[in-house]
Simulated scan of single mutants.
Amino acid sequence: YDRTAIESGALDGRGLEIAYAADAAEFFFLQIQGSGRLRLPDGGIMRIGYDTQNGRGYVGIGKLLLDRGALQRGQASMQGILDYLRADPVRGAAVMNENPSWVFFRELTGPGPLGALGVPVTGRASVAADPKYVPLGAPVFLSLDRAEPGGLWIAQDTGGAIKGANRFDSFWGAGDEARAIAGGMSGRGSALLLLPRASIARLIPAP
């Protein structure tokens, strides 16, 4: 089922729910991020992480809104898109449904959130990458047109929106500061993949 079908009740009655979100737009971004913390009605916190996905391709709504002129350059940050979605909930729901991908979560009770390697990711140290081009576990040195993400990171995760040799998603951890940085994070530059010489020799045969 795609997002529209699931939102319309295609999976109702199967007992798959672990919690209910009070804000549809926040939940949409939680699915993009792949993990997060839920504040429960009693004040407690539930940590959730990626479990599986519905098999549908990811469509970035930020680009859709830019292409249609609904947002201008500089407005397509996470907060800018959230403001647009919340301004008209019916319109916002229709836009979110244009991304057919749906991420399912599970409750995390141990260390986490977990990356694609099955080990916890670390704020300001772990990035998601496309494993077709970047081996998971490899160090990556980022040099971008903004200071925050520059430096050495470890490729520990993947993502439906992370496709291509030079596409990375940096993990900033939890809390207001991490949210502010991650929500506005977009940079251009270069990435250097650091590999042992023997590995490079196997990957790139001699002429």
Rank of each mutant, 00 (worst) to 15 (best):
G92K: 00
P113A: 04
V90C: 03
F141E: 12
A94Y: 00
L144E: 06
L117F: 04
L66W: 00
F104L: 12
N97H: 11
G69S: 10
A94M: 06
L66M: 01
G115Y: 02
A94G: 08
F105R: 10
G137P: 11
M96D: 00
L136Y: 07
F141R: 15
G137R: 11
L144M: 15
V95E: 03
G151Q: 08
A116Y: 06
W153G: 00
P139V: 14
A70V: 12
A155E: 05
L117Y: 04
L117N: 10
Q72A: 10
A76I: 04
G80Q: 07
G151H: 12
E148A: 14
R106T: 14
A87S: 15
G112Y: 03
S77P: 07
F141T: 09
L142G: 04
P135S: 10
L64P: 01
F105K: 08
R146N: 15
L136G: 05
A87V: 07
A76D: 12
P149G: 03
P131Y: 14
Q156N: 14
G80L: 07
L66V: 00
R124F: 08
L85G: 02
D130F: 09
P139E: 08
N99I: 00
L71T: 03
S101N: 07
L82I: 06
L114H: 04
E107K: 12
T158Y: 02
A155N: 10
F104A: 05
A70D: 15
Q75T: 04
M78C: 08
F104G: 02
G80S: 09
A147Y: 07
G115V: 08
S143A: 15
G112K: 01
G112C: 02
G112F: 05
N99R: 00
N97W: 01
G74P: 04
A70S: 13
A138I: 14
L136M: 06
L136T: 10
P135V: 13
E98T: 11
S143D: 15
R68M: 07
G151P: 05
F105P: 02
V134M: 08
A87C: 08
A147V: 13
S101H: 03
D130N: 10
L117P: 02
G123K: 03
P111Y: 03
D145C: 09
L142K: 14
F141Q: 13
A76M: 04
I154N: 00
V119Y: 05
R146H: 12
L64D: 13
I81F: 01
P139L: 12
A147C: 06
A87Q: 11
G92E: 01
L142I: 11
I154D: 00
L136V: 10
Y133P: 02
P113N: 03
P139N: 11
A125E: 15
G137K: 13
V119R: 15
D67A: 11
A116L: 03
N97A: 15
P135Q: 07
T109Y: 14
G92R: 02
I81R: 00
L85Y: 01
S77V: 03
M96C: 09
P113E: 04
G150P: 00
P113W: 01
M96A: 07
P139Q: 13
A125K: 13
G80V: 07
A76R: 03
G92S: 03
T122H: 08
G118I: 14
R73C: 06
V95P: 00
T109Q: 15
G137C: 12
A125F: 12
R68T: 11
G115C: 09
E107F: 09
G74E: 05
G123I: 04
Q75P: 06
T122Y: 01
R68D: 12
P89R: 11
L136N: 09
G137I: 13
T122E: 15
